[in-house]
């Protein structure tokens, strides 16, 4: 299947390459994909992208770690306490569908115009799906399985590790996948808007300086990073389910 996926991407890039070369697409707005790929390689080898990637990845990991830890703990608490769950789940769901990212000026005022503000905003945005999916995942675990654990006198930890976690993991990981995607989007978008930080700032500057090849090279790199994240979290999911 992955061969088909790569084939679709290659066909798409070849079509764009032809369209740009024949000037069906204005080369000022869209550079040749071959040129953008070559530029990505150059910027990676000359070290320019490495520093930017390090900043963006640092912010993304920090935001994701915060969202994952807080989200899973809160989701667990909402599952454990029915009254808490009933009270707060609709609120979290409502916030999840709100454009929280528009609150960024408040984060800048409180935390300053720096990476901390970007990490905090990304974490706040991503914590919501983590909470919801964790709570839903735990609620969906079969009562029969939990009763089996009790009848075998499993400790609380063993019950959690061997019954609750494996049963809930697929849904929790769906939440984490969404959270990771949101964190990366918010981090790059905020870097773009604020023109601080890593790859998002580079995309913004390339756009404002009309450097289309750099623009597409950096956007391509962000897409690759995003795909790598999804692959990594899928691997992690499989490890946890073992």
């Amino acid at each position: 299947m992955w061969i088909v996926r790569i084939a679709v991407i290659v066909v798409f890039l070849v079509l764009v390459e032809i369209a740009v070369r024949t000037e069906l697409i204005n080369p000022f707005f869209v550079p040749r994909p071959s040129e953008a790929v070559a530029r990505m390689g150059t910027r990676l080898t000359d070290g320019e992208f490495l520093g930017l990637v390090a900043v963006t990845l640092g912010e993304t990991f920090a935001g994701f770690a915060l969202a994952a830890v807080v989200g899973m703990v809160v989701g667990f608490l909402l599952w454990r306490s029915r009254s808490l769950g009933d009270a707060f789940e609709p609120l979290v769901a409502a916030l999840f569908s709100s454009p929280i990212v528009l609150l960024y000026p408040i984060f800048l005022v409180i935390l300053g115009r720096n990476s901390t503000a970007i990490v905090a905003l990304a974490a706040v945005f991503a914590v919501l799906p983590t909470i919801l999916f964790t709570k839903q995942a735990l609620s969906a675990v079969s009562r029969t399985m939990l009763n089996v654990g009790r009848s075998l006198n499993l400790s609380a930890w063993s019950n959690f590790r061997h019954i609750l976690l494996p049963a809930a993991a697929p849904t929790i990981f769906t939440g984490l996948r969404i959270a990771l995607t949101y964190v990366l989007i918010v981090v790059v978008a905020m870097e773009y808007i604020l023109q601080i930080g890593g790859l998002g700032r580079f995309v913004s500057e390339s756009s404002l300086l009309f450097r289309a090849t750099d623009l597409y090279a950096s956007v391509g790199l962000i897409v690759i990073i995003s795909a790598a994240f999804i692959w990594a979290i899928n691997r992690l999911e499989k490890l946890v389910q073992r």
Partner: peptide, 15 residues
């Protein structure tokens, strides 16, 4: 899908 995406890039790039 490939053709549609290429076409949309073409439209975006032909201002």
């Amino acid at each position: 899908m490939t053709l549609l995406t290429t076409a949309s890039v073409a439209v975006a790039g032909c201002s």
